[in-house]
Design a protein around this nucleic acid. Structure first.
Lengths: 194, 194
DNA sequence: TCGAGCATGTAAGTTGTTACATGATTTA
DNA sequence: TAAATCATGTAACAACTTACATGCTCGA
């Protein structure tokens, strides 16, 4: 639905190649919006046609930067044109978001309630590990980027985005702790505090 | 991805017509899994072909129940066959879930940080209302279905599903409260406690 | 020189969305 | 009898997923 806009926003923050974008969507951006390289290349193609972004290939890049680059490669760097920037502003203004939260694990719990027990304990433990790992990552980013100095307005917004992730993981882990006994697992050592 | 299984689970809980399912997905089930009537009818058709569910039309229903029904209508009631039940169990066992959380509002915040301000205050207020309304709904369900009496194992699982929703809404509202000043909104009266 | 990672794409199939379409039943 | 709601579908398109496919570059 909003994948092209997710890509535009990523490019506004920093012009990138399709490959770079794919990696960025595997990291920071991917924490709240996922996109595969196939989606990315397809959308980049469409957005070039639509005139939202422009592409600079290896030769153009070599010309643009004074220094001679290490031979023109196939690498294409995309940047957002004014029309694309306007499109982002339009999308932000005009799209009415709803409360949207698909959760397949809750679906599984519901199946367990209906025809269980189905042995969901292992998966709960695996998900706890994953959420804990992500929480740790968020905390590292917090320390690295937002600790101990004054923040600009844009940085405060970025911090708010990170806090959304932090809170979400913490809340999920607390909740999961209460689910453990319902799936036949022992209670965790000293609460979730970790 | 898991829409057919969401439908199977709903049918396991209670055999229903396509229309009934659509309404159930607009209410309780829809709080963590959405499906439109078009998806539902398509999947029901596929699952009948696959032998996962069976359909009883008006005539068959009239025969099955002793009492004479108010004339055979077009209404078709679907129920899960043993094969479908096995398929649910298989899906629960074999599907490895990940941490999945697309959040278009965070995307918008990121756009605001990059090229803002884009006037996101109104949308934040609207979302706060929506989340608050949903929180109220959850609390009503909690009082109605889970208050003041012992719960069976299945009920405890259903309560855990509800608690996931409750916590999610509360956490989101707390977070949103901290975002208000960043979007030029006044702080809320006495915190989020409501 | 070989393997890992860089870099860009196509193809096919499944899901999800939006719009269109029809007719029956119930209630005011 | 008209409107609202019940009830079931089709069609077209857009988005997403999975698998396939190719070739370059850089460091060990």
């Amino acid at each position: 639905m909003s994948t092209p806009h997710a890509i535009l926003i990523a490019l506004l923050e920093k012009p990138s190649s399709g490959y770079d974008l794919a990696r960025r969507f595997d990291r920071a951006i991917g924490y709240f919006w996922r996109a595969t390289h196939q989606q990315i290349y397809r959308e980049l193609g469409r957005m070039v046609e639509a005139g939202w972004v422009a592409v600079m290939d290896g030769d153009a890049l070599a010309q643009a930067s004074q220094e001679a680059l290490p031979a023109a490669t196939r690498r294409k760097v995309y940047r957002v044109l004014p029309v694309g920037r306007d499109e982002v502003a339009r999308w932000v203004r005009e799209t009415r978001l709803g409360v949207d939260d698909r959760n397949a694990f809750l679906l599984k719990l519901r199946a367990d309630a209906a025809i269980g027990p189905l042995g969901l304990g292992d998966e709960l433990l695996r998900l706890i590990d994953e959420h804990r790992a992500r929480l740790d990552t968020y905390r590292e980013i917090e320390q690295r980027d937002f600790a101990g100095h004054a923040l600009t307005n844009a940085q405060q917004l970025q911090y708010a985005i990170l806090r959304a992730g932090l809170l979400q993981q913490q809340t999920w882990l607390e909740w999961a702790d209460g689910v453990r006994p319902l799936l036949g697992l022992p209670a965790s050592e000293r609460g979730v505090a970790n």
